[in-house]
């Protein structure tokens, strides 16, 4: 009985490995091409493995793309700060204080997530043109935060509504006002939600192409997504450098999620407890 159950399981692992390999082939190919020599890029047949591996592409990244990476990092951190600053108090209100009309606001936040980004980009362009915010990092941080604020508010609300009422009551008895309760009790207890929201705000800002291309295409400080885009458009077609940049641009996403996955699932389950 046991044996007959073991064999098909092993067979399933094999199938799973094949499926995963198929799914991740483009990722493998990106890495493989990033290590390929210039003269082998257009070779037929292409090299399936980086046998003549080279770091030419990565050297190009170091020489040309570092400022872009720095800008992306700055934009990502700025977006995180703005998102948490706006979303956390709102989450406290929606999850705990529940003022009249809060339900409607939650509905608006849900719908806000459905608005296509290009419409926002076009509106921002018109507004920024008059305000003189085009081609600058602050404008881009503001625009990028619109991706994360509705999501962040709803996550905070779900998480904070799970905080035991007794905890808030105790603070009240000790004479703490709402602001103090929020700052010294609710926010520290919601650390997991803060990490979750920050993580996604950062990832989305880091990956944003549309706002950057619309609002910052003439700026002196541009994010890495535009760095890659210029590479493709430049017709120099140094594809190993393009792919190397793509690999580098994917690193933060991967690292953050590997390191912080615990927080992500912790935040998620904690938020779900209440339901």
């Amino acid at each position: 009985m046991r044996n007959s159950r073991l064999r098909p399981a092993r067979w399933k692992t094999a199938v799973g490995l094949v499926l995963t390999a198929l799914m991740l082939f483009p990722v493998y190919w990106m890495i493989n091409e990033s290590l390929t020599r210039d003269r082998d890029m257009r070779k037929t047949p292409p090299n399936w493995f980086p046998i003549h591996g080279t770091l030419e592409g990565y050297r190009a990244v170091l020489n040309q793309q570092l400022p872009y990476l720095g800008t992306s990092l700055f934009i990502g951190l700025g977006t995180v700060a703005l998102t948490v600053a706006v979303a956390a108090p709102a989450g406290f209100a929606l999850g705990k204080l529940r003022p009249r009309g809060g339900g409607f606001l939650s509905f608006l936040l849900l719908m806000a997530q459905m608005i296509p980004g290009i419409i926002m980009a076009m509106g921002f362009y018109a507004v920024y043109l008059n305000l003189g915010l085009l081609n600058g990092v602050p404008g881009l941080i503001l625009a990028d935060s619109t991706i994360a604020v509705p999501f962040g508010t709803l996550v905070f609300a779900a998480f904070m509504s799970g905080i035991p009422e007794e905890l808030l009551q105790a603070a009240k008895t000790d004479g703490a006002g709402q602001l103090r309760t929020f700052w010294s009790i609710v926010l520290p207890v919601s650390r997991n939600a803060v990490v979750t929201v920050s993580l996604f705000a950062f990832l989305w800002a880091w990956s944003d192409f549309m706002f950057a291309n619309t609002l910052d295409s003439g700026g002196s400080a541009q994010p890495i997504t535009l760095g890659i885009y210029h590479y493709i458009g430049n017709n120099n077609q140094q594809w190993n450098a393009i792919m190397a940049t793509a690999v580098v641009a994917s690193v933060p996403a991967t690292v953050l999620l590997v390191i912080a996955q615990r927080y992500v699932s912790a935040g998620v389950t904690a938020g779900a407890v209440k339901d």
Partner: peptide, 11 residues
């Protein structure tokens, strides 16, 4: 998880 520009340029 990959930035869209990464997936799009790889494809």
């Amino acid at each position: 998880l990959l930035p869209l520009i990464v997936s799009a340029s790889t494809w």
